[in-house]
């Protein structure tokens, strides 16, 4: 008899836990129609976050993606040399970077930089009652705080992904040219031959979804920050953990969707 009751309460608590994020997403969604008004776009704020999550993240994105390309090429060389087909390292690095590692690495870096920053910022504002102040000024906190971040991330992540893709391929090329003695021109022409722009575009398109997930997770944990000493730190940690988890889940879903259209 205890079993259904505990299942019921479990279900209840599960739904209650789900209610928060769902309501939050609903509130964010309700402000999307406001985006038609230029005032709501808050270009200044958007530019600030674009700088934070985009331009300032560029060096680390370039470095990490370059190294990823390097590592993949080295491992690919070791395996493919067994069958005497080292030239396919080009395909390996190209496809892996464009389809997965470019967007994913950028998303993870953005989680670490932007997601946690969003949670901390909104959390601090909540603790300092700035969120309340916004509300009493009649400004929707979601519109004021989430929208610029969302816009900035939607712009920054794809751009970063493009940079990351290029850096990754460059990393593979460095190994190809130095360690495998493939001429640069041969590496380049093989890259151009084996990859196509749809692979590149669909890979980069993933980062739109990642941007939404990271921003919403970061902001959500900011908004539910408890006003105690560890509240903000906890919010940032939760935001990062949830973002990474959600990014991977979303990546899986998108990969499945892409497989339906043959990519």
């Amino acid at each position: 008899m205890a079993e259904p009751a505990s299942a019921g309460t479990w279900m209840q608590s599960f739904l209650a836990a789900l209610a928060g994020p769902v309501i939050f997403i609903g509130r964010v969604a309700s402000i999307v129609p406001l985006m038609r008004q230029r005032k709501q776009l808050r270009l200044r704020e958007t530019a600030y976050y674009l700088d934070l999550c985009g331009a300032k993240s560029l060096p680390i994105v370039l470095a990490i993606c370059f190294l990823m390309g390097l590592v993949m090429a080295v491992n690919g060389e070791i395996q493919l040399s067994k069958v005497g087909q080292e030239i396919f390292v080009v395909d390996l690095v190209g496809f892996a970077v464009l389809k997965e590692f470019g967007p994913l690495m950028v998303a993870l870096i953005a989680t670490g930089r932007a997601g946690s920053a969003f949670a901390a910022e909104i959390g601090t504002m909540k603790v300092d009652e700035e969120i309340s102040a916004l509300a009493t000024m009649g400004i929707r906190p979601e519109a004021y705080l989430v929208l610029p971040k969302l816009l900035a991330m939607l712009l920054a992540l794809p751009v970063l992904t493009v940079f990351g893709d290029a850096a990754g391929i460059l990393g593979g090329m460095v190994i190809g040219v130095t360690s495998m003695d493939i001429p640069i021109a041969a590496y380049w022409s093989r890259t151009v031959e084996s990859l196509d722009y749809m692979t590149f575009l669909l890979g980069a398109a993933k980062s739109f979804a990642f941007a939404v997930v990271i921003t919403l997770a970061g902001c959500y944990y900011g908004f539910v920050t408890r006003a105690d000493a560890q509240g903000v730190g906890r919010a940032a940690t939760s935001a990062v953990v949830a973002s990474i988890f959600l990014v991977v889940i979303v990546d899986v879903i998108i990969t499945i969707l892409y497989s339906f259209i043959g990519y």
Binding site: M125, D128, E129, E130, S132, T136, M137, G138
Partner: peptide, 18 residues
């Protein structure tokens, strides 16, 4: 609309730090 008639001063001022 009702809230716009209010002016509220919070404990710490609640100014926007940015």
């Amino acid at each position: 609309a009702i809230m716009r008639r209010f002016g509220v001063t919070y404990q710490g001022g609640a100014l926007f730090g940015s």
